[in-house]
Write a protein that binds this DNA or RNA. Structure first.
Lengths: 230, 230
DNA sequence: TGAAACAGTGTCCGGTGGACACAATTAGGG
DNA sequence: CCCTAATTGTGTCCACCGGACACTGTTTCA
C-alpha cells in the first residue's frame, strides 16, 4: 500500500492501447459491491466481473487490493463540510455529524479505515477542517489533535454500534437479553439497566449524548485556558 | 458464531477416545501466535500445527474460526478490576486504564472485537463493572450505557493509535510529515499543527486528555442532575 | 515501417475456511 | 467378556482468495 498511489498524479501514457477502464469506474464498482454485500464481498474477482473483465486486468490500474480499499475509503469519506467560523462548538458538531453521515452511508468504511494505513487527501481534509474549528480555542497543538481524535473515535464507535444494530443476526440487545435471561444473576446491574432502558424507551441518543459530554469537557478546558490567559 | 458456545457448559462425553486437546490449550496457542505475529497469522492450519495436530482436528473442539477468535478475545480482555466504591470518577478511570492495558497487551484484540458479535462473559463483566461505578450518579439507564460506550470508544481509539505507532511501516506521523512536505499548502493548519507538536514534544497524553474531557463532561451532567433533584 | 510500450487474458501457485468419509480408539451394556 | 456405539484425529477434496508471470493483441511514436 504505497503512499504515492493515493497522492501521486498518475500521468497517463501515450503509447499502447487505450485503457478500457478508469480508477474511478473500478472504485465505484467496488463501492457498489461493498454497499450491497459488505466489504468482505469485495474481491478482485468480484469487482472485475462486475465490470466485465478478468481479475488480472485490474492490476493494470492498481498495485493491489489494499490500494483499492484505500481508494474506496477515500471516496466514501468524501469532503468535509464547509468551515463554520466563529463558534468552535457548533463547527465541531457539524463536523462530527458529517463524519457520522458518511460512515452510516457506507458502513464498510469503518473496516476499511482501521489500523495503520496511508492517509489520503480526503482524510487529511477532514483533519484540516476540524483544526480550522479549533483555531481560536487557545489549545496547544497536541491538545487539538487529541480533541479531534476523541471526537472521531466517538463517531466511529457510534457508527459501529449502528452497523451492529442494522445487522439482522447477532442483534446486540436481543443477544444480551437472551443471555441475561439465563445468567442475569451474574450481572445484576446490567440486567436491571437493560430492563430500565426497555421501559424508558428512546435510547437512540447515544451519539448526541457522547458528543455533548465531549464538547462540554472541551468547553471546560477552553474556558479555563482563556481565564488563565487574561 | 453461536452464542451458546461462549456461554454453554460443554458437557464432556463418556464414550470414545480421550480428547488430546483442550479448548484452553487451543485458545492459548492461538493467542501466542496472534501476540507474536498478529491476528492475520492465526489460521486453523497454523494453530493446529503449533499444537502438533492437523487443522481438521480443531473442528472437533470448535464449530469454526469465528468461535476461536471469540474465545481469544474473551481471554485477552480478561476480568475487570475490582469495584472501587464511592468515587465514580476514579472508578471509571481505573476501568478505562485496565481496559487499555488489556488492549495494549494484546493489540489484535481490537480487530477481534469489531462488528456485531456474540458477547462473552468477560465482556459483560467489564460492562457490569462500569455500571457499578455509575450506580449512584443519578443518570438514567441509557445514559449510563452511553457514557460507558463513549469511554470504551475512547480506549479503543487510543489502543488503535498505539498499535499504529508500534507498527514499523506506515508510521502515522512520518507519513503525514512526508505528505505535508509535498502538499502542505493544501493543509496549512495541519502543517502548522504538526510543526508545533514537534516543537512542543510530549504528545503521549492523548489517553489522559480524552479521559479527562469525557469525565469532565460527565461531571457537568451529573452535577446538574443532582442539583435538579435537590 | 518497424519497435517499443501498454492492455487484457490465461495459467499457475500457495494460502484460507470448511465438508465429508474414514480408521482408530474408547467405554458402556448385554 | 466382548461387541457395539460414540467419539477422536486424519486425509482428501472443494471453492475461493490475492497475486506472479508469460503471452497475445493493440496502439503510437520515431
Amino acid at each position: 500500500m504505497s503512499m504515492e498511489f493515493l497522492w501521486g498524479a498518475r500521468a497517463q501514457p501515450t503509447r499502447g492501447p487505450k485503457p478500457s477502464l478508469t480508477l474511478l469506474q473500478i472504485t465505484d464498482a467496488a463501492i457498489a459491491v461493498a454497499d450491497a454485500e459488505g466489504l468482505a464481498a469485495v474481491s478482485m474477482q468480484r469487482v472485475s466481473a462486475e465490470l466485465g473483465f478478468t481479475k488480472m486486468s485490474l492490476y493494470r490500474y492498481l498495485p493491489g487490493k489494499g490500494e483499492l480499499v484505500a481508494l474506496m475509503a477515500e471516496r466514501a469519506i468524501g469532503t468535509p463540510p464547509p468551515p463554520n467560523p466563529g463558534d468552535w462548538g457548533a463547527a465541531l458538531r457539524e463536523w462530527a455529524h458529517g463524519l457520522l453521515t458518511a460512515y452510516l452511508r457506507h458502513p464498510w468504511a469503518l473496516e476499511a479505515t482501521v489500523g495503520p494505513r496511508p492517509l489520503g487527501p480526503h482524510e487529511l481534509g477532514w483533519l484540516e477542517c476540524a483544526l480550522t474549528a479549533l483555531a481560536d480555542t487557545g489549545l496547544s497543538g497536541s491538545e487539538r489533535l487529541d480533541a479531534i481524535a476523541v471526537l472521531a473515535g466517538h463517531v466511529r464507535m457510534i457508527a459501529q454500534q449502528a452497523a451492529a444494530m442494522r445487522d439482522p443476526d447477532a442483534q446486540f440487545s436481543a443477544g444480551v437479553v437472551a443471555v441475561l435471561a439465563e445468567h442475569g444473576d451474574r450481572f445484576p446491574l446490567l440486567a436491571a439497566t437493560m430492563a430500565a432502558v426497555a421501559v424508558e424507551g428512546g435510547q437512540d441518543q447515544a451519539f448526541e449524548f457522547g458528543l455533548d459530554r465531549i464538547l462540554d469537557g472541551l468547553q471546560t478546558l477552553i474556558a479555563s485556558r482563556r481565564k488563565a490567559l487574561r
